[in-house]
């Protein structure tokens, strides 16, 4: 659905079902340079399982207009305000990559009722190398292509996809190209500059789930494992794939999330 939010056209994927805030809501937060299409195989899956699903395109991403947020805090405030605007009260926030940092920060400021936090390919910090930061300014398309290549495991290299006929690289590059050219640069700087992750992780008081990837080159497994140690009683799983878990291992990821959600009910 498209709404006018904070004066800008804002797209919110709902998984093919109408938003029903009386149900438990799953809010999916995309990663740097991504948009709602990162969660193609999660949005419809959970919407058809009876959850209310919101997958917003952050400002300047996907189908949303507006200026990109310039920090993780700004992203979190934007999401917080959106949840208030949509009158969403009981929410499970599911972040992927940068979305995990936004979820951490959101946990500190959220005015709605937080049910649980799910981190997919997450960490408490996502340092970005100087080369990629500069490239995202000079040539965002090239930077996107490099991220898509680094981000996928062997399934990306070999064009293996659970969705018949789809290519991780071809689809991934074009998803990133849908964003405004400045979006990636601000996202990567936001990730690189974020330094409150340790405190935020220690502050989590709701049930938490982390799904990490063995061959993750963007948020390496080692970093993810240190991160989950900071969270009290974080259920942790590791899948054999690259950083783009939602498209590389959709069924496994959905199954883990679904089991976790059932325990909350």
């Amino acid at each position: 659905m498209i709404i006018n939010f904070k004066g800008a056209k804002t797209y919110i994927g709902t998984g093919g079902k109408s938003l029903d805030v009386t149900k438990m809501t799953l809010c999916f937060l995309h990663g740097a340079g991504q948009n709602h299409l990162s969660f193609i195989q999660q949005a419809r899956f959970f919407a058809y399982k009876g959850y209310s699903v919101v997958v917003p395109d952050m400002p300047a991403h996907g189908f949303s207009d507006g200026n990109p947020c310039k920090s993780i805090k700004e992203n979190a405030e934007w999401i917080n305000d959106l949840l208030v605007e949509l009158n969403i009260k009981d929410v499970v926030v599911i972040g992927h990559s940068q979305g995990c940092l936004v979820a951490l920060e959101l946990n500190r400021i959220l005015k709605s009722s937080f049910e649980a936090l799910i981190f997919v390919a997450g960490s408490n910090e996502i340092p970005v190398n100087q080369f990629l930061l500069e490239l995202s300014k000079e040539n965002p398309q090239k930077a996107s292509q490099m991220m898509v290549t680094w981000g996928h495991g062997i399934d990306g290299d070999m064009s293996i996809n659970k969705w018949p006929g789809h290519s991780h690289y071809g689809e991934g590059n074009n998803i990133m190209c849908m964003n405004k050219p400045t979006a990636l640069r601000y996202d990567l700087h936001s990730c690189n500059d974020y330094s409150d992750g340790i405190d935020a992780a220690k502050n989590i008081k709701v049930p938490a789930l982390a799904v990490l990837a063995k061959n993750d080159q963007m948020t390496p497994l080692k970093s993810g494992l240190k991160f989950v140690e900071l969270i009290k009683n974080c259920e942790t799983h590791t899948l054999d794939c690259g950083h783009f878990l939602p498209s590389e291992r959709p069924m496994e990821l959905n199954s883990i999330i679904n089991s976790f959600l059932l325990k909350l009910k």
């Binding site: 064009s159 659970k162 789809h166």
Partner: peptide, 29 residues
């Protein structure tokens, strides 16, 4: 989610061919 339900729509052998073509052309699908 992706997967196969009937060969008129998709098939694992045909999907391997499709994914090879997408890779060779640099396409999304």
């Amino acid at each position: 989610v992706g997967g196969h339900l009937y060969t008129r729509i998709s098939n694992p052998t045909v999907a391997a061919l499709e994914q090879r073509l997408a890779a060779l052309e640099g396409g999304a699908s």
